[in-house]
Design a protein around this nucleic acid. Structure first.
Length: 604
RNA sequence: GCGCCCGUAGCUCAGCUGGAUAGAGCAGCGGAUUUCUAAUCCGCUGGUCGGGGGUUCGAAUCCCUCCGGGCGCGCCA
């Protein structure tokens, strides 16, 4: 994937040399953007603070580019909104030479002359390059994102897909905004079940294939150990002993086996992550926090918020969160052992001390809402001011067609993530064979498109919504899918490639932006990438960007299809303007795809 | 029982944090191909925004209530 990106940027650089866009430098520093101009003029004539004036988009693009609803102001002035709109329209008429103002009922609609709009938007894209839509709002701030977090000794299955894909996208989004991002993989490498696994390894190692695919072999052993734990008392005793030995920290056979299991599991995970373009900054197993558990308990106790209830150590939470009055947080069982919450609390303290994060996001399914709400409430009771920085980024469940549960662990059926990815890639390869058999990079593109379909399927709706996992639907590669976005990108790339190859007359020409008269929606859409990216980060909601990318791709596709917008071989100055639009749309769509964690192929 | 979430076209979802006539995709029907890539585009059909109250100049959006569905609820993770 890295290679492809390098190739794209080489092409970009070459294209930029051949047909430079209007120099944005002076325009950006000296001239306000059209929305700034509009806000300033409104502020001047209404006396209202420009921050209090809210601009929006007209319902119908034919009405204008930017709208100002006059209701609020009209009420203050005890004036009918349409009258105020008309009055303001008259006053503002003389303010601009390239922005038209009309009053439409209670609305004031502004339309920016296409040359100005184009210069401004295309110039901003050109100036920012790959950083377009980004900012430096996160400079000096750290965001910790806990995502994916699989358990060892089992392959990643469809159940891990949502956290992995959502988290990976959030990592990219925050990074684009200048944050230092620490992607954390909190590996489940601890627990009583490893006692059973160790015994299973001792007994049946030779009966399974641990050579070719160790993780699948381990899964087999893990399932057999679960059976044996139920029926075989000798096995049970050995398993308990093995887990005790593991917990003791003693070096020996048990520790060695456990370490080996961890290693091969991580190796397997990393192969999958590599295909998805994912690399965590911080990989740490639950086991790492074991030595900190006593100190964590002491710390909570010292804060004076614990009590003993039915023999267990708990923190009552009703006083900081009424909804939790019936559900205290258990930190230590009556037999002395610690719990899930204890471990997460230990990890949280450790992360705070290590990273002093601005936000700490847990990309974990909605089933665990109570757990994270309790963790935050414990912090609140301890008067930790940073409790508010901890967020549970919850998401809906993965369901099969007909809303039935899939990947039920109880029955031991696992839909292995790698197999699923393979299936998507194979399907993509078939479509390529059918649509574009001459493509020289078939295998690479099939990988990009297949994975793109899978990733986008998970990101296109709000994360809280359940995902109906219907292969027939997202392997169709039609409509609102990842491949649709990639295809649009490839078509734009194709135009640029052909312009370069043929030495089109538009390449050296001075752009005539009046040729972009009917491209206003696209330009306005491009201009919004920054707002959308910020919203996606603020809400921890990648679907903001998915929906944005779909809108942009739809508008671009429509525009490209109209014969009058033909780029190549048209009148050179008009062609130059259209070529500039194509370049900016491609760059913008490419950035959006990359923020979602998808490849943007040049051809497909 | 308690806590939280969801309910918009036949299906899957948008709806710019309260604004103008509620929009896409899929499915169905009908069109566009000597293609700057038809993995596309255009048109048609399809709506009591779960029901009922309320707040507001204005509600799919905010509040209350009921209905339907889901998730969770101390010694698992």
């Amino acid at each position: 994937m890295r290679g492809a990106i390098a190739a794209i940027s080489r092409l970009e650089a070459r294209a930029a040399r051949l047909y430079p866009l209007p120099a944005p430098s002076r325009a950006r520093s000296a001239m306000p953007t059209f929305s700034e101009s509009i806000l300033a003029a409104l502020s001047k004539h209404t006396g209202a603070n420009s921050g209090a004036l809210k601009l929006e988009s007209p319902r119908d693009p034919a009405l204008g580019d930017v709208a100002f609803p006059c209701f609020v102001l009209a009420k203050e002035r005890k004036q009918p909104p349409p009258a105020l709109a008309a009055e303001l329209a008259a006053k503002l008429a003389g303010e601009f030479d390239d922005i038209a103002v009309v009053a439409t009922g209670p609305y004031l609609n502004f339309r920016v002359a296409r040359p100005r709009l184009a210069r401004e938007v295309l110039g901003a894209v050109e100036a920012a390059g790959a950083r377009f839509g980004g900012s430096s709002e996160g400079a000096g701030k750290t965001v910790v994102i806990d995502y994916s977090s699989p358990n060892i000794a089992k392959p990643m299955h469809v159940g891990h897909i949502r956290s992995t894909i959502l988290g990976a996208s959030l990592v990219r989004i925050f990074r684009h905004l200048g944050y230092r991002v620490v992607g954390v993989n909190h590996i489940g490498d601890w627990g009583a079940q490893f006692g059973g696994l160790v015994v299973a390894l001792r007994r049946w190692k030779s009966q399974v294939d641990l050579e070719r695919d160790p993780v699948m072999g381990l899964l087999d052993l893990y399932q057999r150990s679960k059976e044996a734990l139920k029926s075989d008392e000798q096995f049970q005793r050995e398993a308990v002993a093995a887990y005790q030995e593991l917990e003791s920290g003693r070096e020996g056979e048990v520790r060695e086996l456990w370490r080996w299991v961890t290693e091969v599991s991580l190796r397997g995970f990393n192969a999958t992550y590599k295909r998805l373009g994912i690399a965590h900054e911080h990989v740490r197993g639950e086991s790492w926090y074991e030595p900190l558990l006593q100190a964590t308990l002491e710390r909570v106790k010292a804060a004076g918020v614990t009590e003993i209830s039915e023999g267990a150590l708990v923190v009552m939470l009703g006083e900081v969160d009424k909804g939790l009055k019936a559900t205290p947080c258990l930190l230590q069982q009556s037999n002395g052992t610690t719990l899930y919450a204890t471990r997460d609390l230990a990890a949280l303290f450790s992360r705070w001390e290590e990273f002093a994060f601005e936000r700490c996001l847990y990309v974990v399914g909605g089933e665990q809402k109570l757990h994270f709400r309790q963790l935050k409430a414990v912090l609140q009771r301890m008067n930790e001011a940073w409790a508010a920085r901890v967020e549970h980024v919850d998401f809906g469940m993965l369901l099969g067609p007909g809303r039935v549960k899939i990947a039920s662990r109880k029955r031991g059926e696992v839909l292995v993530l790698d197999d699923l990815i393979d299936e998507c890639v194979e399907e993509a390869a078939k479509v390529i064979e059918e649509k574009n058999p001459g493509l020289s990079t078939k295998a690479q593109v099939a990988e990009q498109v297949g994975i793109g379909a899978l990733v986008f399927n998970d990101l296109k709706r709000e994360r809280i919504k359940d995902v109906i996992f219907d292969k027939r639907e997202f392997l169709a590669f039609e409509g609102d899918t990842g491949p649709y976005l990639q295809y649009t990108h490839a078509r734009l790339a194709s135009i640029l490639r052909k312009a370069l190859a043929s030495g089109d007359a538009a390449l050296g020409a001075e752009p005539d932006f009046t040729a972009l008269e009917n491209a206003g929606e696209i330009l306005l859409r491009i201009a919004r990438l920054g707002d959308v990216t910020r919203a996606a980060a603020a809400k921890a909601e990648p679907s903001e960007l998915s929906q944005y990318a779909l809108s942009l791709a739809r508008e671009v596709s429509t525009w490209l299809t109209q014969p009058e917008n033909r780029v190549l071989g048209s009148e050179p100055r008009a062609g130059a303007a259209r070529l500039a639009l194509v370049r900016a749309a491609k760059a913008t769509l490419g950035i959006a795809l990359s923020l979602l964690g998808m490849a943007a192929p040049e051809e497909m």
